[in-house]
């Protein structure tokens, strides 16, 4: 089966992700696109650098999608972009297809929150004025084998 998760330095294509999870058996689809915002904590942002430990991030993103598909009757696709992104560019895209709306919404939210909690990705905001800064985050922990 074609892999539906990846870490990439290329521009994201949310429409392609949505097509990848579509099915004639599905009556619902949910998607999420995260973009670089122009202002954060009162400071004007010109770009964000995304750093990533790629081998682990690829595996963790696939694990998160698999967990969602085990928990709900859904099909999940997700991509996280890395590198330097200007304001307005998409950094994260998630698409979920399912028979009914509830599981699409729930699974999409689950994948998003787990990405924020578990994916080894870091962002450094670059401001119009002054030095950039690494944003605070969520400490990782060893997960028990499942």
């Amino acid at each position: 089966m074609r892999r539906l998760t990846r870490i990439t330095s290329s521009r994201l294509n949310p429409a392609a992700l949505s097509r990848a999870v579509s099915s004639a058996r599905h009556g619902a689809a949910a998607s999420f696109v995260g973009t670089v915002r122009a202002v954060h904590a009162g400071r004007r942002v010109k770009a964000v650098s995304y750093d990533c430990f790629a081998p682990l991030a690829e595996k963790e993103l696939a694990r998160i999608a698999a967990e969602a598909e085990k928990r709900w009757p859904v099909k999940v696709a997700a991509e996280h972009r890395i590198g330097l992104l200007s304001v307005g560019h998409a950094s994260l895209a998630i698409a979920v297809g399912s028979g009914h709306r509830a599981e699409s919404f729930e699974a999409c939210r689950f994948v998003l929150e787990e990405i924020k909690r578990r994916l080894p990705v870091w962002k450094k905001e670059r401001y119009l004025r002054g030095e950039g800064r690494w944003l605070p985050g969520c400490a990782l922990h060893r997960k028990s084998a499942t």
Partner: peptide, 8 residues
């Protein structure tokens, strides 16, 4: 070595 993460 991985600091606290903040993807998305």
């Amino acid at each position: 070595v991985l600091p606290p993460v903040c993807g998305g």
